[in-house]
């Protein structure tokens, strides 16, 4: 296809009709509002947002599983709503925590079955299965029944399934959800390697793990409550905050009054407080280093002692807080 964009999303919206539990309750839920995105071929693009932000809804639309209510989306140059048969051979998807396939079949048999659904001949399918299982470290489990695999190994099998068809565009929906550190690292390594070796292939990754997006993605869109609020490279997004001074502060337990005081101090832009057992953790966003003296003064006034103080570089978490106005955890609670 001549379209340089692997994914093109224009004014996309989706409203779900919900069965009312009580009379008079809202019967609609807006999942996406006026989303616009362009993802060029060869890019690893991240959608970052809390649970319920609309990430999965967007992926479902892009994978032809859900019709948009408004706007349109093109994948590999084809309209997902009107040209689904053209889109489907070119894409694949892997979701976190999915239990696809059949437990009675072995890893190889399940993968072979899904390969057949894409029209791959058996010889090609087995050659690819061998190559991919080797890369994800699952070669010795090829003849293990899927029901006997651990969650991490099963997800590695799912990853192989998603890449087996050598798709032009791969959608990874929270692919490392619930996995241990080792399995998550292996999957990230595999995705990076695949992107490096398959020029022009595109990955759209949704995650609510900031570090994952930061580590993997060429560009990131921050999405919350169905709207894309920012979209740029992780470096550029973080650069926005470099005019701010960011500190991580641990103190003796704080009372709520102290927090209110901090937020009204001159030069203090944002304060995020996380109470822990026996201490309080504060993330401070200040206009300049000089504002720190006011915070320390206020801490002293509230009889709080400083356990540790660290100046740090901005992260995507800080960007998220800056763009959305609350942390990812708070956004998830808000969404619920």
């Amino acid at each position: 296809m001549s379209d340089p964009q692997a994914i093109r999303v224009e004014n996309l919206g989706r409203v779900y009709k919900i069965r009312a539990v009580k009379k008079g309750e809202a019967r609609e839920r807006v999942a996406l509002t006026d989303v616009n995105l362009d993802v060029p071929r060869g890019e690893l693009f991240g959608l970052l947002g809390p649970n319920g932000a609309g990430k999965t809804t967007l992926i479902k639309i892009l994978t032809t599983l859900l019709a948009p209510t408004t706007g349109r989306a093109l994948v590999a140059g084809y309209d997902v709503a009107r040209q689904a048969p053209e889109v489907r051979p070119r894409i694949n998807m892997v979701s976190g925590g999915e239990s696809s396939g059949y437990g009675l079949l072995t890893v190889r048999e399940n993968l072979w079955m899904f390969g057949q659904f894409y029209g791959l001949d058996t010889q090609t399918t087995h050659a690819r299965i061998d190559a991919l299982l080797e890369i994800v470290g699952l070669a010795d489990r090829a003849h293990t029944k899927t029901s006997d695999l651990s969650t991490g190994l099963r997800q590695k099998m799912n990853i192989v399934r998603g890449f087996l068809t050598d798709p032009e565009v791969v959608f990874l929906d929270e692919p490392t959800l619930g996995l241990d550190v080792g399995a998550s690292r292996d999957i990230r390594r595999f995705v990076r390697q695949w992107m490096a070796e398959r020029a022009g292939r595109t990955v759209l990754l949704t995650t609510h793990y900031m570090a994952e997006a930061d580590e993997l993605c060429d560009r990131v869109a921050i999405i919350n409550a169905g709207r894309v609020l920012a979209c740029d490279t992780p470096a550029n997004l973080k650069r926005r905050l470099q005019r701010e001074a960011l500190f991580k502060l641990e103190t003796s337990p704080l009372v709520n009054g102290a927090l209110t005081t901090f937020q009204t101090l001159p030069g203090v832009r944002k304060v995020l407080h996380a109470p822990h057992d026996g201490f309080s953790a504060l993330d401070l966003s200040l206009e300049a280093d000089s504002a720190l003296s006011g915070v320390i003064g206020a801490l002293t006034a509230h009889n709080a002692s400083i356990i540790s103080l660290q100046k740090r570089e901005p992260t995507l978490e800080d960007v998220f807080v800056d763009v959305v106005g609350m942390s990812m955890t708070e956004a998830e609670k808000h969404g619920d």
Partner: peptide, 25 residues
Amino acid sequence: TLVNTRPPDRGWRLFLRTIVARAYP
């Protein structure tokens, strides 16, 4: 090794492959 040995089947060949693959489990 991901390079195709031949293009994926479409049409009735894909239809038959799918039937066999889904009957297999």
